[in-house]
Design a protein around this nucleic acid. Structure first.
Length: 300
DNA sequence: CGTGGGACCTGAACGC
DNA sequence: TGCGTTCAGGTCCCAC
């Protein structure tokens, strides 16, 4: 499911809601999604606090106390839901992370040693304190949770990703990336080692906006078109963010709300409909095995 | 190097 | 209603 705008939307919400929460327990009925293993992950994170949550490409990175990181990849159908333990069950939940949140005023008292540290027993829970659940739902079970304990491991992993379009991808870098490949430009856009965060929806829409044929070889995209495509990528990603992501199928935000970008698709999913620019019928073909939507008249 | 196909899994939508 | 087919927002791995 989620591409950069979806993952970034979730990241912003999770960071706001879970910063300062500590892991109390983890449960799963799908151990395979934990790397290196459920027991290792569970043992490592229980008692640790979430200090912040960042993102690289489509990866969510939880930075925990003690210098460890917990990565989530939602793949096609993953959802991260923030609930109270008493909230009704959600479908396709494979793992539940129970979290405890202690408000800042209590943490101050804790620092002054006027309150005992750590997770209190149930009976000593104070009214301001909260238990939350982070539910990891995933219909197709492709998503995963990965524990990273070493700085080098993290650096190595991040090195496998290209620049972020809304941060460090410059026009020059982008043009060089296109020039370096004879593969169809759409395949290049989807290659996370070259550019972070684009997926099928936003790649299709960006190519339509720039009037570039998705099948055209990367190194045959002219300088002028390359600038146009670069601008279009930034535009569609910002639009995706503005609308809170695309809930075409499985994607939802952290409380189950849908995004709205699916109401504003430029070309994705519109085969058989008319091109919004020239009224030619939108076609669907396979490029690199993926559904690809484009206008055969105005994308060249 | 590039490409194409299958694998990982399950659910939804559609045609008969 | 049931069954079969196709498709799905991602990525990895392998044979050619």
């Amino acid at each position: 499911m989620p591409e950069l705008p979806e993952v970034e939307t979730i990241r912003r919400q999770l960071d706001k809601e879970l910063r300062g929460c500590s892991f109390v327990s983890v449960k799963t009925d799908w151990e395979k999604s934990f790397r290196p293993s459920f027991n290792i992950v569970s043992k490592a994170i229980v008692g640790k606090e979430i200090e912040s949550i960042s993102r690289q490409a489509k990866l969510l990175i939880f930075h925990l106390s003690g210098g460890i990181e917990l990565l989530f990849h939602l793949k096609l159908t993953g959802q991260l839901l923030v609930r109270k333990p008493s909230d009704p069950a959600d479908k396709y939940v494979r793992s539940v992370f129970t979290l405890y949140w202690r408000p800042p005023q209590l943490r101050e008292l804790e620092l002054l040693e006027l309150l005992p540290k750590g997770v209190p027993l149930r009976k000593s829970r104070r009214p301001l304190e909260e238990m939350k659940e982070l539910r990891f739902a995933d219909a197709r079970k492709f998503g995963f949770v990965k524990l990273i304990t070493g700085k080098k491991e993290m650096e190595g992993l991040l090195k496998g990703y290209g620049p972020e379009p809304l941060k460090d991808l410059t026009l020059n870098k982008f043009s060089a990336i296109l020039k370096s490949s004879s593969r169809p430009v759409k395949i290049v856009l989807l290659d996370q080692a070259k550019i972070s965060g684009l997926g099928n929806i936003y790649a299709n829409d960006a190519l339509w906006l720039a009037k570039v044929d998705p099948r055209k070889a990367g190194n045959k995209v002219t300088k002028g078109l390359s600038k146009k495509l670069y601008d279009s990528i930034l535009i569609v990603l910002r639009r995706g963010l503005k609308y809170g992501g695309a809930s075409d199928q499985w994607y939802v935000q952290t409380h189950g709300e849908k995004g709205k970008y699916q109401e504003h698709f430029l070309v994705y999913g519109r085969s058989g409909e008319k091109c919004q620019r020239c009224h030619t019928e939108i076609k669907r073909v396979a490029v690199g095995g993926r559904g690809t939507f484009f206008c055969p008249n105005c994308q060249r």
